[in-house]
Nucleic acid binder design. Structure first.
Length: 303
DNA sequence: AAACCGGGGAG
DNA sequence: CTCCCAGGTTT
């Protein structure tokens, strides 16, 4: 390691980041605030490797908020492809429309303005301020939570939900000036993504291994392990919704009811899920041309 | 605080 | 097979 053992945690991680940052398109010098916002929404629960190609295609199609605001929702949902949680795509388009109507087509800079946008929560608002505008903010995502849990709190993993104490700890570490704070935000996230990983951390490559409380304590096990439960996916409504959306994304014409029903064996569950998709605005029902009594409807993505 | 919301790849 | 991923919204 080339780090200075005398340096505290924050500058060491920042120095490490200068040498080890991934070359991601939303970090390019010619990135826009809109591009950063799009990346942050896509990265909500979707890994970087799957976001990158979708982000490139998305930004080529809709380089500014006004472009996305004017797009067909069906095109938007197809471009979202299989990133998962397609309500995020809807919110991102609503977000673009809000930016056009309320902010003249420019991504706002104030935290309260960002938080008021659809699909933007505390993490995304802080991330946009830091990465798009270089402003000081407390960026606390799953990576930073894990880095702080280990290095400072001595825990194997952070708890299931974010606590006030964690936010305070994170706040206490953020450098005072804008540029360094923004660098720390990116650096701490990157350390969590590349070195201080959840499954098998690469402590041999960690610039702060010698001052990590978790490591010094001999890697005590995760105290939340017994309470942690996996979400499960097979057979859930989420899987059924995904099936239906995949079917409609690939369809060039509205899909007849019987073909939608063929996508899942449990009729009651399928009906519930399709109704939910309609309620969410992800699916549109096209009544039978002769009226509801003349025959079954067809289904398509919203225009 | 807990539930809900996708999908894929690593281990 | 389980776990995890640059979370947000709703109840």
């Amino acid at each position: 390691m080339t780090h200075d053992p005398g340096l505290p945690l924050v500058p060491r991680v920042i120095d490490w980041f200068a040498e080890n940052a991934r070359d991601l398109p939303w970090r390019s010098p010619d990135r826009t605030a809109w591009g950063v916002l799009v990346s942050e929404v896509m990265l909500q629960q979707t890994p970087v490797v799957r976001v990158e190609p979708a982000w490139r295609a998305w930004m080529a199609a809709w380089p500014e908020p006004a472009d996305l605001a004017a797009a067909s929702t069906a095109d938007v949902l197809r471009a979202w492809d299989r990133l998962g949680y397609p309500r995020r795509a809807l919110r991102l388009q609503e977000c673009a429309r809000t930016i056009v109507e309320r902010h003249g087509g420019r991504v706002p800079t104030e935290e309260a303005e960002l938080l008021a946008l659809p699909g933007v929560g505390s993490y995304t608002a802080a991330a946009v301020r830091a990465f798009a505008y270089g402003r000081r903010s407390v960026v606390l995502d799953t990576n930073v939570r894990r880095v702080l849990a280990r290095t400072a709190a001595g825990a194997a993993l952070p708890g299931p939900s974010q606590t006030v104490a964690e936010v305070r700890l994170a706040e206490s570490l953020v450098p005072a000036d804008d540029a360094t704070a923004a660098r720390w935000a990116a650096a701490s996230m990157e350390l969590g993504a590349l070195v201080c990983t959840a499954r098998s951390p690469r402590c041999d490559a960690c610039p702060v291994a010698d001052l990590c409380v978790w490591r010094t304590a001999g890697y005590p096990p995760d105290v939340h392990a017994s309470r942690r439960r996996t979400q499960g996916f097979a057979g859930t409504d989420r899987q059924v919704r995904g099936r239906v959306m995949a079917l409609l994304r690939s369809a060039l014409e509205p899909v007849p009811l019987d073909e939608v029903e063929a996508a899942w064996p449990d009729r009651a569950q399928l009906t519930r899920c399709v109704d939910g998709l309609v309620t969410d605005g992800l699916v549109t029902v096209v009544p039978h041309p002769g009226g509801p009594d003349a025959g079954p409807p067809t289904y398509r993505l919203p225009h």
